[in-house]
């Protein structure tokens, strides 16, 4: 029991360190200025089209330097999903959920909501590769 708690703590510490170093890299090194050091999207390299995640690395750099507009122009879906992801993390961490939070969870993170997420991702994927829609997305 004690050793399993110990292991769990170690895993959390290792993940926190990995995450913090990654955030530091993305804050202080711009993927736009030093693209060689950042992995490229294989989908974009082979098809020339953008995937739903394209622009996320550059957007993260701008977000970590508090440039919301620049981040939005690179990947609007990423910026718009932040409040949703934060609330989702919080609901995941809070167990058991009670009363109205259970309703919030079922409404915003239930089966229908999950399918809406899937459709939004797929529509965004298609839309950002159609010039007219893409220019509207970045306006």
């Amino acid at each position: 029991m004690a050793s399993s708690t110990h292991n769990r703590l170690l895993i959390i510490v290792v993940w926190a360190l990995v995450l913090l170093s990654l955030l530091a890299v993305y804050k202080f090194i711009s993927p736009e200025l030093a693209p060689a050091y950042f992995p490229k999207c294989p989908f974009r390299q082979y098809t020339g089209l953008q995937c739903p995640g394209c622009g996320s690395q550059r957007a993260l750099h701008h977000l970590l330097n508090f440039r919301l507009g620049a981040a939005f122009a690179l990947n609007p879906l990423l910026v718009l999903s932040i409040p949703y992801l934060l609330l989702g993390f919080w609901l995941d961490a809070t167990r058991p959920l009670k009363g109205k939070w259970l309703v919030v969870r079922r409404t915003l993170y239930g089966r229908v909501a999950i399918l809406v997420c899937l459709v939004v991702v797929l529509l965004f994927w298609a839309g950002r590769n159609i010039p007219i829609v893409a220019s509207w997305l970045n306006s």
Binding site: F43, C51, P52, G53, S56, Q57, N75, L77, L78, S81, Y84, L85, G88, F89, D92, R95, P96, L97, L102, R105, Y109, R111, I114, L115, C117, L118, V121
Partner: peptide
């Protein structure tokens, strides 16, 4: 409280690394 669906992590995976794994994750969540 339903079990963890991993939806949030799946969306992060979709946006940051591997699109196919992320999409499969979202379908598993449902």
């Amino acid at each position: 409280t339903p079990p963890k669906t991993w939806l949030v992590e799946s969306i992060l995976v979709t946006l940051f690394c591997c699109l196919p794994a992320g999409i499969v994750g979202i379908i598993n969540a449902s």
